[in-house]
């Protein structure tokens, strides 16, 4: 991680775009949830990368350390991860119900069955 500059942010952008592509291009609902998860964690990485201070250590106060990374993004992302898994579970529960109602988790087939009714 010795690359100076904006290298980390570009990784984040690449990951985020991969997630976005899965969400809008793929028609499978479970895969869309995975894509949403990738999108989400790319934002997490972005926040944490911003909080890093050159030469700093983890924000746990110890003797001998002078510079610490910014604790604020850590707090925000810590809670966001747990909320993320809770919402993931909610989305999956909805998918399971959709599967019971329509017998499929492909978006196209759901639309077809809707049109038939």
């Amino acid at each position: 991680m010795e690359f100076p500059g904006l290298y980390d942010y570009w990784i984040v952008v690449a990951l985020m775009m991969a997630g976005l592509y899965i969400v809008i291009a793929r028609r499978n609902l479970v895969k869309q949830m995975v894509g949403l998860g990738i999108f989400q964690s790319s934002v997490f990485i972005f926040y944490i990368a911003m909080g890093k201070v050159e030469g700093g250590t983890a924000p746990i106060l110890t003797e001998g350390a002078t510079a610490y990374s910014n604790p604020l993004p850590h707090v925000l992302i810590l809670t966001a991860i747990v909320v993320g898994v809770a919402t993931l579970a909610l989305g999956l529960a909805l998918i399971v119900r959709i599967n019971e109602a329509y017998g499929t988790i492909e978006e196209d087939e759901i639309h077809e069955k809707e049109a038939q009714q």
Binding site: F44, G51, S69, H74, V82
Partner: peptide, 14 residues
Amino acid sequence: FDAVDVAFTEAAVG
């Protein structure tokens, strides 16, 4: 990135 707490959570949750 020095975020040990977050890494911990991500490993357990993700």
